[in-house]
Design a protein around this nucleic acid. Structure first.
Lengths: 213, 213
DNA sequence: CTCACAATACCCACAAATGGTGATTTTTCA
DNA sequence: TGAAAAATCACCATTTGTGGGTATTGTGAG
């Protein structure tokens, strides 16, 4: 049987190199390419198919969540293992709902990574222990259903949350986008509601994690 | 002449592995250990000396900036190359002021990393192109003097900024720390002044980058 | 034994964000 | 084309944060 073709999507060079080296110590795996963001990944996959993608959630230009959603449409059969430092429930849920098979935390060991890779290649769901814990806790405390539909943000909401994270006031955002300050407030309210946060601090963290700033 | 002894301080396993593998392809370098945070680094160095440390700025428990300051006291001769994704001026300046010799951005190439390592081992300052740009811009726009003294935060201020990032209101922070809400406001003001930010959003980003949340 | 600084607290005024409700227009897509 | 979703705006009231100044106490470094 032929080797498993793998693509690594991670903007951090040392991290991508590390993942590649770990995989190439195992026979049967071939790392076909390393890409720096979701756009590059989709461009590469357009003509060169692969079996598995190790995908960092936090990437510039096009992050893991958006990429996952696009992948699910374009390449439904490609297995994806999320490999990231982000441990909050919302990202785990988002990735799984969008179609990732596993979620590996970069704080884990080398052996764990290989376990995770083997599991997802068998089609099994894999979650790092800390990720699993995070999901359980999140479920109990916030009553967010991990199997529920992913609540996406609209493009306007993304513009707004980005400017909030850049320390703009509502008036400044309104001026920048040529809309009323009241409209900005409305957007902020639906953002806070969708992301289930209490204040701007929550919005800022979300935007930072997604590399929208 | 003997091999250069290197320690890698990075909580991200793939990243640490990647750095180790890149260095071990070059003869004359020996990676003595990989540690996950500043505390572990100092503990390791207490009895086992080394020549060079590759240090991620963003680490749990004890981050790169605090670690750098301690290193400067305890092991003044050990050369440190910061290796991180953080590209904002404040972190570059902080690390350099605290004694780092170089600052390498993880978006750089493998060749650049080796260049950086060779440069700092010669005792030369190295800055990734994007980091240099960030310093120049920061200097021009904010009139922050990169050669000025590093303004540290007090322990109380660190508690406060952490709770701000955790979406606590001033009243909640006051209740949690058993102090007056007015005192919290005073602390926030000096925080914003020291970190040169306009709103809570700036505080949140700082706390997140330093892994204080 | 000072002197600087950290931590505490209060005053006032104003700016900004949050929360609720309702509504209109435009866009998108089935 | 018709319903749903997105984007827009306007009120309201209330809470929260920002910005200025001032002052006291304790503590640690020189």
């Amino acid at each position: 049987m032929s080797a498993v073709k793998i693509i690594i999507a991670d903007a951090s060079m040392p991290s991508a190199v590390g993942l590649r080296d770990l995989l190439t110590t195992v026979s049967g795996y071939v790392v076909e390419a390393i890409v720096g963001n979701g756009k590059e990944l989709l461009a590469h996959m357009a003509n060169r198919p692969c079996d598995l993608v190790l995908m960092e959630v936090s990437m510039p230009v096009m992050d893991g969540i958006d990429t996952m959603r696009a992948m699910h449409q374009l390449h439904p059969k490609v297995v994806v293992l999320a490999v990231t430092k982000l441990h909050a429930v919302e990202y785990i849920n988002s990735m799984l709902i969008e179609g990732a098979t596993g979620y590996f935390l970069k704080s884990g060991t080398q052996d764990e990574l290989l376990l995770a890779v083997r599991a997802v290649l068998r089609g099994e769901r894999y979650l790092s222990p800390a990720a699993q814990e995070s999901v359980d806790k999140g479920y109990a405390h916030t009553s967010k259903d991990p199997s529920g539909p992913y609540v996406g943000l609209t493009s306007r909401e993304r513009e707004i949350i980005r400017l909030v994270a850049l320390e703009y006031t509502n008036d400044e955002i309104a001026a920048a986008l040529f809309i009323s300050a009241d409209t900005v407030k409305t957007h902020r309210r639906s953002l806070m509601s969708k992301l289930n946060v209490r204040s701007a601090a929550g919005l800022v963290k979300y935007a930072v994690d997604r590399e929208w700033i």
